[in-house]
Design a protein around this nucleic acid. Structure first.
Lengths: 235, 235
DNA sequence: CGGGCGAAGATTGTATAAAGTTTCGCCTGT
DNA sequence: ACAGGCGAAACTTTATACAATCTTCGCCCG
């Protein structure tokens, strides 16, 4: 039979080496340890993960497709530097998609999911309490990802993963104050609405949550070059 | 200065060899010349395009990320075979995104764009008139892509490219009748609404257009295994 | 003293070869 | 005759070597 040495049809995040590299770099970017514009040399990363350039290249190409890395021909890979225009597009897309995602998540409400949501909120609160900015940033994004997983729509989930990754870079570049993370309270409110299966409130809360995140940003128009210089000088 | 040897920020479809392979295979899939389930051997494709397996592999990985190719570990790449559940997700996403895209396209109305739209409609009519099913399928998808380009939103454009590619496979697998292509008339109606800058009508027309396409499909629930067997036996 | 040219070094792009896995045919044993 | 397992062939995966390109630094000229 063919079903002898069958493993899971597709591992959730494939524990192969390419995925380990991709997730490692992604985490570093999302936790703001790798700043936009940073050069990602192939040999450099390969040595860190003990992998050949072939695998590193594959991982970087995937990240480029996700939009958090730019690959310039014959120059290499760099952490992406979203422009204000990109930022507006990303948040517009999130405002369009995420209310719908919450709506679908409510169709999947179950004790198991509510448990996972509650557990996540606890983690967020704890990270915020101990002032761990990196963990807060990561967990804040993971909350939205969790809701998307709950919705069961793989297309929306894929789109949102991309949008969340880009949002993390955008928030790093353009936030006004040093607001640690965007409203854990908002997340709690959304979970409450989900628990009550109140679609309208859930959608509205998600929308206003996204609006408040974007309102915290300073998206001036001709900022790209200025910021580039400022960053380089700051480094 | 850093801005000395700057070329175009990003070539439209990068005339490098990887892109040529990717576009060639994509066209073959979108025109229904490569059927779902077909094995895409690396040597095979490499020989066709006179390229090494390295480049073929890169192209196939990009196609896998776009969702029209599945890569099974240690087995190779195959043309994707969307399930009915996938199909419903794809069309739901299109119903969510495309009305918004049309709305934004209206912001960009200009003689140049109206000209391009009109020219496209002419091509579609011509292909349909001469019964060229392959060209009709391709052009039908390209219409939606054109509107997305017109909207100027690169995020939506990227998402829609993926959705269109998957839609083409879905229509091939699940269409009821041998309807040649889905409503060139619908496209003409949408263009008219765009020309009049009538947002509400444009959104409504796009929505009903998508609904009619999906209504032409036969999305039975437990079809996956049946279809796989049937196809294999038929081949 | 500033600017441009040029060669050396470094880095990426591509191809080829080695290693591991799956698959299919064939052979043996019952 | 048929089930089960062994083995070879084909393919994918990974690593390494080579070629092309860009960057950098030094030097020369104006």
């Amino acid at each position: 039979m063919a079903a002898k040495t069958r493993q899971k049809p597709d591992a959730p995040d494939a524990s192969d080496r390419v995925s380990r590299i991709r997730e490692g770099v992604t985490a570093a970017i999302l936790e703001h340890r790798l700043l936009p514009g940073t050069k990602l040399g192939e040999d450099e990363i390969g040595e860190i993960y003990g992998a050949s350039r072939t695998l590193v290249r594959t991982a970087l190409q995937q990240l480029a497709h996700e939009g958090i890395v730019n690959i310039e021909k014959n120059r290499g890979a760099f952490v992406a530097r979203p422009t204000p225009a990109d930022a507006r597009e990303v948040f517009e897309a999130r405002r369009l998609i995420e209310p719908t995602i919450v709506d679908h998540a409510i169709d999947a409400v179950s004790p198991t999911w509510l448990d996972r949501l509650g557990q996540h909120l606890a983690e967020e609160r704890e990270a915020e309490l101990r002032g761990d900015a990196r963990a807060s940033v990561r967990l804040s994004g993971e909350f939205h990802r969790l809701v998307a997983e709950m919705s069961g729509h793989s297309i929306y989930l894929g789109f949102l993963k991309e949008l969340i990754a880009r949002s993390s870079l955008i928030i790093l570049l353009y936030r006004r104050h040093d607001t640690p993370a965007c409203g854990t309270d908002h997340h709690a409110g959304i979970v409450t609405a989900i628990r009550k299966r109140d679609r309208e409130v859930a959608r509205a809360q998600m929308l206003s949550h996204l609006n408040e995140i974007e309102a915290e940003l300073f998206l001036k128009d001709p900022a790209a070059d200025e910021l580039r210089l400022a960053d380089v000088l700051g480094a």
